[in-house]
Computed example of a mutant assay.
Amino acid sequence: MVARRGRPVAPLVLTDDESETLQRWIQRADSQALAQRCRIVLRCAAGNTNKQVAEELGVSPEMVCKWRQRFIDKRLDGLADKPRPGAPRTITDEAVENVIVATLERQPKDGTHWSRSTMAAETGLSQSAVGRIWKSLGINPHQDDTFTISTDPQFIAKVRDVVGFYLDPPEKALVLCVDEKAQIEAERNAAALPMTPGIPWRTHEYAHHGITTVFAALDLAMGELYGSIHRRHRAAEFKKFLATVDSTVPADLDVHVICDNYSTHKSPTITRWLAAHPRFHMHFTPTYSSWLNQVERWSGLLTDQKLRRSVHRSIQAFENDIRGWINTRNNNPRPFNWTKSADEILERLAPYLQRIPGAAH
């Protein structure tokens, strides 16, 4: 038997308090470097070798060895950076953590969210110190947003299906991301007042001239858009749009259509049309997951670059302007670059689902 070479690795055993602290630092660390050291220690404590930890975290074995030994020698204090030249810190790590915990887990007694002044009064720090801590972590208590968690029982399967087309599209097939931009309103009679230094673009007169709907199909590979405009938004109009796509796409290609769960896309009229056109295959995004459809990026560009500041005195002029914008973009089409795998998306969503009662089921 060949003797094992190399120095024996010192065992690393954590107390319950140390394990809890390391997990908390990973979630709230104001330094990614500290979070990485905590991950190294936790994996070492789980019985992994230095090489296994290095491969899993994408760091060098020497780094794993360094922080394993530093923790064994000095425990939690060993994970901090060594003092650097310059004036000593006046705000302790404990004070920083108190600000973070209070901001994320508690509300002030007289309000729904913290301000710099109320947090300063709570912690005894200056308002500027509170502001620096928040800024370093990207915390903005004055801002809010909304989101909706999908309740689709096939959420995971649909995410893998759609993302699979983005990352590995099939051969001899066309993948189209389809959606409707409905109820677009032609409005505004007169041109806006132009920007001047210190004064933004401004509008001063509105008149409603009617509404229209843009049916759009984004070619995943080429970035070209198939667009069709209709005054109504029904299964009949969607069927006409699919027929237009069918007549445009070469007959030897299968067509995979990625779209949402809107009732128009699943109506008996569309079901019968699809049965008569077997080269068309529908793939539905999960409910409340429009962000998964790449055509939403195009829809946002249409709003920002054309609709938000356009001036039209008739619905016909409005529709012609949209057609012109689509044609101009198709003269130099550019596909969007999707980079996230299904596993990465699901891993990113997991912490949010765990914080919401019933959302993970």
Score class of each variant (00 low, 15 high):
4 R>L: 15
8 P>E: 04
9 V>W: 01
15 T>Y: 04
17 D>S: 12
17 D>G: 05
25 W>S: 11
25 W>P: 05
27 Q>M: 10
32 Q>H: 14
34 L>Y: 11
42 L>K: 00
42 L>G: 10
42 L>A: 09
43 R>M: 13
44 C>Q: 02
46 A>N: 05
47 G>H: 11
49 T>R: 01
52 Q>Y: 06
53 V>G: 04
54 A>P: 13
60 S>E: 12
62 E>T: 15
70 R>L: 01
75 R>M: 04
75 R>C: 04
84 R>A: 13
86 G>F: 03
87 A>L: 05
91 I>D: 09
93 D>Q: 10
94 E>P: 02
95 A>Q: 14
97 E>T: 13
99 V>L: 11
101 V>K: 08
102 A>Y: 04
103 T>F: 06
103 T>Q: 07
104 L>S: 13
109 K>I: 10
110 D>M: 06
111 G>V: 10
113 H>R: 15
113 H>L: 04
114 W>G: 05
115 S>E: 06
118 T>L: 08
119 M>T: 01
120 A>V: 02
126 S>K: 07
129 A>Y: 02
130 V>T: 04
132 R>P: 04
136 S>A: 13
138 G>N: 07
148 T>W: 08
157 A>I: 04
158 K>I: 08
159 V>P: 00
160 R>H: 14
164 G>I: 14
165 F>S: 09
166 Y>S: 03
166 Y>V: 11
171 E>I: 00
174 L>Q: 04
177 C>D: 11
179 D>E: 08
180 E>D: 07
182 A>I: 06
185 E>T: 12
191 A>L: 09
195 M>Y: 13
196 T>V: 12
202 R>L: 15
203 T>R: 13
205 E>G: 01
206 Y>P: 03
206 Y>H: 12
209 H>L: 03
210 G>C: 02
210 G>L: 02
215 F>L: 04
216 A>F: 00
218 L>E: 05
223 G>S: 03
226 Y>F: 01
228 S>H: 03
239 K>Q: 15
251 A>D: 11
253 L>K: 06
255 V>Y: 05
263 S>L: 06
269 T>Q: 09
271 T>H: 07
271 T>D: 09
277 H>S: 12
277 H>F: 08
280 F>M: 08
280 F>P: 03
280 F>Q: 07
287 T>E: 09
288 Y>P: 03
292 L>Y: 12
298 W>K: 01
298 W>L: 14
301 L>V: 10
303 T>S: 14
307 L>D: 01
309 R>C: 13
310 S>M: 10
310 S>A: 14
312 H>W: 09
313 R>S: 09
313 R>L: 07
319 E>R: 00
322 I>C: 01
325 W>H: 07
325 W>M: 05
331 N>H: 06
332 N>Q: 08
333 P>Q: 02
335 P>L: 03
339 T>E: 02
345 I>T: 05
346 L>N: 07
348 R>I: 06
351 P>A: 07
353 L>K: 15
353 L>Q: 13
354 Q>H: 15
356 I>G: 12
358 G>C: 09
